[in-house]
Amino acid sequence: MTDPLLEIDALSIAYHTDHGRLSALRGASLIARAGEVIGIVGESGCGKSTLAASVINLLPAAAEVTNGAVRYKGQDILSLHPEAQRALRGQDIAMIFQDPMTAFNPVLTMGAQLVDFQHAAQIPRAEKLARARTLLARVGMPDPDLTLRRYPHQLSGGMRQRVAIAAALLMNPTILVADEPTTALDVTMEAQIIHLLRDLRRDYQGAILVITHHLGVVAELCDRVYVMYAGEVVEEALVDDLFHAPLHPYTSALIACDPGHFEQATPILPTIPGRLPDLRNPPIGCSFAPRCPIASEICATPPPRMQISLTQSALCHKAGGRP
């Protein structure tokens, strides 16, 4: 196999809040290789956005990296000089943010912002504009010239998300991180954006990380999936294996709750009982145990990472049907 482009190694991040220290990430690991589309799924508060922000070290001031490393092409990003980190942002690693409504500056035209985002390129402004125009056409904007003259509020949500994708591709980055790219959109727009991302991945050489809570997005887009729960990666699998033979009970529960897989109307939508553990005092044993239908006494001890194949593993005492 090729060397990973991105390697997140046992990363732990804590937030300092008024109510104490909150462990948002606890030893999360992930690798992404060139040409791969990686999905990161989990419910709100599981740490997936923290993981996304750590890739370009855009963590809020209250966050502290307590352990682990983020390596890009073998180089630890988090220990780089801030200026060197800044040089990677938008150039090597680009982000597509969740909320297209607020992601752009409201008093600058799209053209001005798309030109600014190419600040590292030593080319004349006209060429930067031409590049922006090409990419806007690539993401399916009907009139790129008009779009460049528009202000963000003059575009619809779906249009803005297209522009956000074009912006991320401007500098031809090696890693593209899409943090909930479709969450703020309605269903038809979501389908269009997923279609666009699928279309783009065909001729994209780098790695794409898609953060989402929507299993449908994962099934449509990704090659491999990391399932997160309470700051930990609880399962890693190829997308087919994940849906057909999930290892971790949390993964099974997530799939059971996905409204997309029901073929007939049900009077009640299944949910996972209970709630996320308090991340100020994370449990010593399995963090999913209090909500887990198959938990037993052993689950009060730290769960092992069960590797059942080269590509699939789970953080569970009972992974793969062990008693």
Binding site: G90, L108, H119, A120
Partner: peptide, 19 residues
């Protein structure tokens, strides 16, 4: 959010604050 976007594209902090 748009300030975070500007930073995510590696714009210099001085430009982020002023422009």
């Amino acid at each position: 959010n748009h300030i975070r976007t500007a930073r995510a594209f590696g714009l210099p902090e001085r430009k982020v604050v002023t422009r």
